[in-house]
Amino acid sequence: MASLMQSLKGSTPAWLTGRRLVIGLPYAWFLILALLPVLIVLKISLSEMQTTAVSGMVSWQGAWPQIKIDVSSYLFLAFDELYLLTYLSSIQYAFYTTVICLGLGYPFAYFMARAPKHWQALLLMLIMLPFWTSFLLRIYAWKTLLVNNGLINSALLALGWIDSPIEMLNTPFSLMLGMVYSYLPFMILPLYANLSKLDGRYLEAAADLGCHPFKTFWLITVPLSKAGIVAGCMLVFIPAVGEYVIPELLGGPNTLMIGRVLWDEFFSNNDWPMASAVTIVMLLLIMLPLTIYNKLQSEGRA
């Protein structure tokens, strides 16, 4: 056994050992599966669409490479009001989703973190439980609940509380319901992780200095859980902006969300450069505020 290990060790090239491997793998993963695709999308967005394929960016004129950059997609994006409105409406929906998730998730995470230890595991299980069922199935299930002759309307009609079914499906209401329902666990989990580590002595110290428990919550608990709030909001907001499935299934034809525009550009209009430009702009819209925030954070700490 020892000699086998020895020979294995001997055959491994020097650059592929321990530390380098551990650090290198995630970087390689990131480069190949995240950065490279983004660069490809960027390239497509700056190309011209030919009938079935995207034109090459580099063409050869003798020995000289010619780089052709086509910014028409971006110009179109900038001057067509529809895209601007869609971006704004996507951000708006994502913002409301984040705020509602925070409002619902914070108390949930707070009481979960304060529950007796043996309860916490169970509550955590309950939050994770929906993940055992396919996301798509769960959204379809909402469809059957919300539809005019669905469970909720039938129940309300049977109880005599309403005379005619309430139009719920394919409205902003059903969209928001689906978004909040789907993203709530992503808000609760980082908040719970943060709040369960909150040192109880800070709360005691505040009480000792004459601070009422309600005030302590705002002055101590909330500021100290800022990292959890930021993490939760990012985990909800970023995917919510680009969400496609929920608006498609619950949002109805009139909800403007950038994910659906993307789909249309790619698969209905078959305009890949346009779709890619939409993607790149969306990426920038999300990344810029995050980068600025991170920079401010690190400066504030230094």
């Binding site: 505040a206 004459g210 601070c211």
Partner: peptide, 26 residues
């Protein structure tokens, strides 16, 4: 009654002055 805690329990997000002023503000 005020207490000085075992490992101080100074509020990490507040400055030294704000820590001292915390009780007075209340």
């Amino acid at each position: 009654i005020n207490m000085m805690f075992q490992s101080y329990a100074l509020f990490p997000h507040l400055s030294v002055s704000d820590n001292i002023a915390f009780g007075l503000r209340r």
